[in-house]
């Protein structure tokens, strides 16, 4: 379906193809212009670095979501999963302080725990939905509730706080920088590059596209559909784990309100970036731009008092819809005719 659309677009006019791929970038440039007009402080180095650093959490998770969605799945559990993994990391590291002390080993073991939990949680989502033949929507809705309750339970309803000694050791992972670029931004970029190579340059990526386009045909073409789909959830889990690894040192805490609605933000970033929600076509760089756009909207709203606070959600919703319309809508085809 999607490949048909693309060939149609490329034959009708050269203008269209570029626009479709560039759509999210142009929308982002538009937002940046808007931000600069609203407040001079927008383009200051500090503010830009804030935007990109903040976008890293949702962005990294959204890179994983691009795989899941491209292969025709959906994962609603990522926000809760992030909260649960953050909580588990904090509990493990706090326990280790007694035996290992607040050193680098403690942090490394915490990170290892995060990676293992991420892979395991992703595998559960993938295996239960493929082998159990249950819609991913239901499976991940279920795990979403499970992880959310688990973190509330671990925190006794309150907040889990990381030991202050460990916080000092771990702090550079969020607050540090290399050549002036904050560490989370570098991690975000690295994850995106790996994601791009995996999705666009490997057989695995092509299989994701094929399964998302038509699962039956993919199965007849001797693709191990269940295995590939499960792997996309594992990648998603791994991405959530990477996001928590840079999230925990920021405020050193996790509670039941950590990561609420991150799943929707991640899915929105993916769709704004040009990936099809019904699967079959995915674009990693679009996702990256989508995540930055979402963060930028929030940032711009904080930089102005022209819009009532109560309407923030409305402005965000409107910009998201307009951004997707600009790259999808029929208006381009009519113009070119």
């Amino acid at each position: 379906m999607s490949s048909l659309e693309r060939t149609e677009a490329s034959t009708s006019s050269g203008f269209n193809i570029d626009f479709k791929a560039l759509g999210p970038f142009l929308a982002l440039v538009g937002l940046f212009v808007l931000g600069t007009v609203i407040n001079d402080a927008f383009l200051s180095g500090g503010n830009l670095s804030n935007i990109f650093t903040r976008a890293a959490f949702i962005g990294i998770i959204a890179v994983g979501a691009t795989f899941v969605i491209t292969a025709g799945g959906i994962d609603l559990s990522v926000g809760s999963m992030a909260a649960f993994i953050s909580g588990a990391m904090i509990v493990v590291m706090n326990t280790l302080v007694e035996t290992l002390g607040a050193g680098v080993e403690t942090v490394l073991i915490g990170i290892l725990v995060s990676v293992l939990l991420g892979i395991a949680a992703g595998a559960v989502n993938g295996l239960v939905s493929t082998k159990g033949k249950i819609e991913a929507f239901i499976v991940t809705l279920g795990t979403m509730g499970i992880y959310r309750s688990l973190v509330t339970y671990m925190a006794d309803g309150g907040t889990l706080s990381l030991d202050f000694g460990v916080r000092g050791v771990y702090r550079p992972v969020y607050y540090g920088d290399v050549l002036g670029i904050p560490v989370p931004v570098l991690v975000f970029f690295a994850v995106a590059v790996v994601g791009y190579v995996l999705l666009n340059m490997t057989p695995f990526g092509r299989k994701c596209f094929a399964i998302g386009s038509n699962e039956q045909v993919a199965r007849y073409s001797a693709i191990h559909v269940d295995r590939v789909k499960t792997l996309t959830y594992v990648i998603q889990g791994l991405c959530v784990s990477v996001a928590t690894i840079i999230y925990v040192p920021r405020l050193g805490s996790a509670s039941s309100s950590t990561g609420v609605l991150w799943e929707l933000e991640a899915i929105a970033a993916v769709i704004i970036g040009g990936t099809m929600l019904k699967g079959g076509y995915g674009r990693i760089w679009g996702t990256v731009v989508g995540a930055i756009m979402l963060t930028t909207i929030g940032n711009i709203l904080n930089l102005t008092d022209a819009i009532s606070n109560y309407l923030n959600g409305a402005v965000q919703g409107l910009i998201i819809i307009v951004a997707v319309f600009l790259q999808r809508g029929d208006w381009r085809r009519k113009k070119s005719k």
Binding site: A41, N47, R54, L251, S253, S255, N302, N312
Partner: peptide
């Protein structure tokens, strides 16, 4: 100078304050 909603939430408090600081 301005009032913004941070939703009684740590992460939101952090982000809103960052923006106040650059503004």
């Amino acid at each position: 100078l301005d009032m913004k909603h941070a939703n009684w939430n740590r992460d939101d408090g952090y982000e809103v304050m960052q923006d106040f600081l650059s503004r």
